[in-house]
């Protein structure tokens, strides 16, 4: 599929929104269905391979969605190029760091289990 350049952010924003809605439904099911969410149950679910993958994907989707939204806000309100690039740069670094940190945390928990 060919995605136009201008359209890409708009499509990714919607795709990540749909993914986040799915994760939200999963989270709600986790809290509402089954036994109460004790530490044991939460830990077992979150550090299983599918659980860890879902958590990393969740943060990746949150960061991607947040990045597109933040970029839209910056394009609207910040017109000086140096200021624009600085703000975008800072946001990108923070979001990237969050995803990496969550990925490393989940990887560490996975290796502890196995």
């Amino acid at each position: 599929m060919r995605v136009f350049v201008g359209q890409r952010a708009w499509l990714l924003q919607r795709a990540s929104a749909l993914a986040l809605l799915l994760f939200l439904a999963l989270g709600a099911a986790l809290l509402l269905v089954g036994p109460p969410l004790t530490y044991e149950r939460w830990h077992a679910l979150a550090t299983s391979l599918p659980g860890a993958v879902i958590i990393v994907l969740l943060f990746a989707a949150l960061s991607l969605h947040g990045w597109i939204g933040a970029r839209d806000i910056v394009l609207d309100y910040i017109h000086s190029m140096p200021a624009r690039l600085s703000v975008l740069g800072i946001i990108a670094v923070i979001l990237f760091a969050i995803v990496i940190r969550v990925a490393l945390t989940m990887a560490a928990h996975l290796s502890l289990v196995t």
């Binding site: 939460w42 830990h43 979150a46 550090t47 958590i55 969050i98 969550v102 945390t105």
Partner: peptide, 10 residues
Amino acid sequence: LLALTLERSL
């Protein structure tokens, strides 16, 4: 904050 909460919860 959510990332830190996740770390703490585990």
